[in-house]
Write a protein that binds this DNA or RNA. Structure first.
Length: 425
RNA sequence: GGAAGAGUGGUCGAGUGGUUUAAGGCGUCGGUCUUGAAAACCGAAGAGGGUGCAAGUCCUCCGUGAGUUCGAAUCUCACCUCUUCCGCCA
């Protein structure tokens, strides 16, 4: 959520920022509601002040044994007015805040302006595309022939968009989760284990609600949501808290499954396990002092990149332009890994700075040593990393002519010493 | 799931209808004293919002939301969370 005070001062600034995202926002409407709210607030607070004084008087009169009937009648009338004005003010305030909750974060000053993903500039590349003296296969063929990936049976159990690993495939999923968690811990992120099901307040705090209810699984009986990313529970760890400035930056890492309905995405890039309803992901989340958030973003990105480097996978980093930026982010980098069989770059990480957009919604603040007021922290997060597409890249990059797969050195210990995945198991 | 009890500031804890402007302890910060520290003593300090150039001033906040009342931390109702006991259970 944006800062209403800044919005009052310069609504045009926000209008332009939202326009850079392709949104035409009627800022005057919001300003009018806000002005009206402030006017009613001034009135109602004055009435309340009068009532407080009069009530105190009544108390004193009663204590002295005087008759307070007429004074009580007068204040009763005040009470009626207060009630009426109060509900009017509450209505206006709700209008403003529900509107603001549905508006995205303004892109940062660094964010390139653009309309679609075509406009996302490439930041850098690491490594080169793997070369083969045979035609590399896609992971869905490799997985089936090696009998480690069973999509038909996953569909039988749950429907399309779910995956099922067997044998070395299942082991590979577990190995990567552990490898990522270990690496992130080494890089200073504290490992956490969080709920996979969260309440509406947490979902609103990070920005999934109220706008994207169609994208998330909702257990209506209990009004709880399956997490679409660990970002939600992990960021909310410090909701409604005032942190000590000397504890910042705080960095966490967490593994969770991620559940996404992917409404309307059927058919698009959905072959194999490229886009699924449930996938594993290890996430990194930071709470930082505002002045440091953009250097922290670069560090977060470097940490995520390092994971792919150790796996020896070629990737590129792109920066999202204003039109392609996610709802809550002010600036965002995507890391895309090369998958030779699929013949595409696949997004495996999004590293974002949310500035104070989430911390304002979640009320995550920090306080310095002296008389300084509590200020909102900046929050950041990035995948480190999303599993299925990493496995796709691994399988397709390390495949051999006979369809077997070589296990990269760093994963061998996590695979119980297994150095290759073959059809013989 | 059932029963009982409880939720007050950074923390512990008093307050059960009216100068509560939320006591007091601990912790924190500043000062006095000291070579320095500790101890002791003195003092300061919550959050959000409105208004104002400012000093200031006003409103709201005692788990959450409604209600009763001239007036609610205090009374009523609903919900949430925690504790204990019982039941069920990996």
């Amino acid at each position: 959520m944006i800062d209403i005070k800044k919005f009052r001062e310069d609504a045009d600034f926000f209008k332009q920022k939202w326009a850079a995202r392709g949104l035409d926002v009627d800022v005057n409407e919001i300003l009018a509601w806000d002005t009206e709210w402030r006017e009613s607030t001034v009135k109602v607070e004055d009435l309340k002040s009068q009532r407080n004084v009069a009530s105190k008087q009544i108390g004193i009169m009663k204590k002295n044994g005087e008759d307070a009937t007429s004074a009580m009648d007068a204040v009763r009338d005040l009470g009626e007015q207060i009630k009426e004005l109060d509900s009017k003010a509450a209505e206006l305030s709700n209008k403003v805040s529900s509107k603001l909750l549905s508006l995205p974060n303004p892109p940062s000053e660094f964010t390139p302006v653009g309309t679609t993903e075509e406009d996302n500039p490439e930041v850098r590349r690491w490594g080169t595309k793997a070369e083969f003296d045979f035609t590399p296969q896609a992971h869905w063929d490799l997985g089936q022939k090696l009998d480690i990936l069973d999509l038909p049976r996953a569909a039988k159990i749950s429907g399309s968009g779910f995956y099922l690993w067997k044998g070395a495939g299942a082991r590979l999923e577990r190995a990567l989760i552990n490898f990522f968690l270990d690496q992130n811990t080494e890089n200073g992120y504290k490992e956490t284990w969080v709920p996979f099901v969260v309440n509406p307040k947490a979902m609103t705090g990070t920005g999934q609600l109220p706008k994207f209810s169609e994208e998330i699984y909702h257990a209506t009986e209990d009004n709880l949501y399956l997490v679409p990313t660990a970002e939600v529970p992990v960021t909310n760890i410090h909701a409604d808290e005032i942190l000590d400035a000397k504890d910042l930056p705080i960095a966490y890492t967490a593994y969770t499954p991620c559940f996404r309905r992917e409404a309307g995405a059927a058919g698009k890039d959905s072959r194999g396990i490229l886009r699924v309803h449930q996938f594993s992901k290890v996430e990194m989340v930071k709470f930082v002092e505002p002045s440091t958030s953009y250097t922290e973003l670069e560090m977060l990105l470097a940490d995520a990149e390092h994971l792919l480097q150790q796996l020896g996978l070629h990737y590129r980093v792109i920066e999202l332009c204003s039109g392609d930026l996610g709802f809550s982010a002010a600036r965002c980098y995507d890391i895309e890994v090369w998958a030779p069989g699929t013949d595409r770059y696949l997004e495996v990480s999004s590293c974002s700075n949310f500035e104070d957009f989430q911390s304002r919604r979640c009320k995550i603040r920090y306080k310095g040593d002296k008389e300084k007021k509590a200020e909102l922290v900046h929050t950041l997060n990035g995948s480190g990393l999303a599993l299925p597409r990493c496995i796709v890249a691994l399988m397709e990059t390390y495949q051999r002519a006979d369809g077997s797969i070589e296990v990269p050195d760093v994963l061998v210990p996590y695979m119980g010493g297994l150095t290759e995945i073959t059809a013989e198991g």
